[in-house]
Structure formats: structure tokens, C-alpha cells
Amino acid sequence: MDLDELRRQWRHQAPESTPPLTPEAMQAILSQPDSSPLGLIRRNARFEAAIALLCLPIAAAVILLAPDAYPRIMAGWLVLICLGALYYLYQKFRVLDQLQPTAGGLRQQLEQQIGSLRRLVQLYYRATMLSLFGSFGIGLVMQGLKFARTEHGPKLALMLGVLVVAYLLIGWFTYGLLHRFTHWYLQRLYGRHIDRLDGYLRDLRTAD
């Protein structure tokens, strides 16, 4: 079959039967909830940001009103975590904005998408690992304060030393596990898509 003949047939094929596009039909298309993966990620991120924003005034109130040092320290820790989470979410929204399809050339679109997805993966990995340090930090501080309430002098120093060593060992083990899991999870979530886009980009560049 001659390709030019196919092209002629293509141009004369009957259009797919669809209802006429009225302003109401267009409005209906544009009003549908965004069910794309990007839309879902964005919705989840907004939910996380709302929780972080909700926690901030509560933690601030505890810092200002609590009579004991212990809840104030924990609330201060929570403020730091919330601020870190908000910064992470801000960066995430920026990357998500860059992932939207643009009106640029396909090659530029693919390059931008691959770069943005890699940044998103990197951001996710760093945030996960930092949250591990955050969680362990809370545990260490809580336990350390508990010891300080009952013990004093060299015994307290010894107990704190053992605590730090135990946390370092458990932390090192957990870090290894979390690193492997996060790597596997991100590869499953984004890796195949990035590999596919990379393949498309190579495909476009094969003519170079």
C-alpha cells in the first residue's frame, strides 16, 4: 500500500460521530474534577498543607500557654516539622506546576517533564529521609527528658550515652531499610514513567 494513498484516505475518513460542541458541553468538560495523577497529587499535597497549617497555631498555643517545659519542647519540635513540611510542599507545588503539559515543542516538553519528575523524586526521597531524622529526634528528646526527670549526675550521663548509641544503631538500621523501600517505591511510582519518557526522548534524538 502506497503511503500517499493512505494519507489521502486518512484525510477523507469520516469523522468520529460526536455530539456538537456547545458552550454547555464545553463547560461540562472543563468543570469535571481533575482526576489526572497530577490532580490527585496536588489534592493530596493541599490536604497535607492544610494539616500542617492547622498544627502550627495549636503548637504555638502550647508553647505560649503550657506551664511545663516538656510539652513546650515537643510543641517547638512540631513547629519545626510543620515548617519543614510546608517548605517541602511549596517546592512540590512548584515542581507540579512544571509538570503540566505546555504549548512548547514535544522535545522540550519531554525534557522538562523528565527534569521535573526527577526533582519530584529527589524531593520526595529527601523529605522521607528527613522525616526519619525528625521522628527519631522526637523519640530521643522525649526519652532523654524522661531520664532527666528521674536521674542525675554520672548515671544520667551514662543513660543518655546508651540512649544515643541505641538510637544511632536503630537509626542506621532503619535508615537502610527506609532507603531501600523508598527507592523501590519511587521506582514503582515514577521510575517506569521517567524511563518511558527517557525512551521517547531518545527516540526523538535518534535522528540527531
Binding site: L38, P101, T102, A103, G104, G105, L106, Q109, L110, Q113
Partner: peptide, 16 residues
């Protein structure tokens, strides 16, 4: 050109 660009960018690079 504008229509093809956006349409192909969506079709080729969509995460869905």
C-alpha cells in the same frame, strides 16, 4: 501548530 503541540504533549507525556 499550537493545537498539535498541546495535544501531542498531553498524549505522549501524560502520567495517566
Amino acid at each position: 501548530t499550537w493545537l498539535y503541540r498541546v495535544a501531542l504533549n498531553v498524549a505522549v507525556s501524560d502520567l495517566r
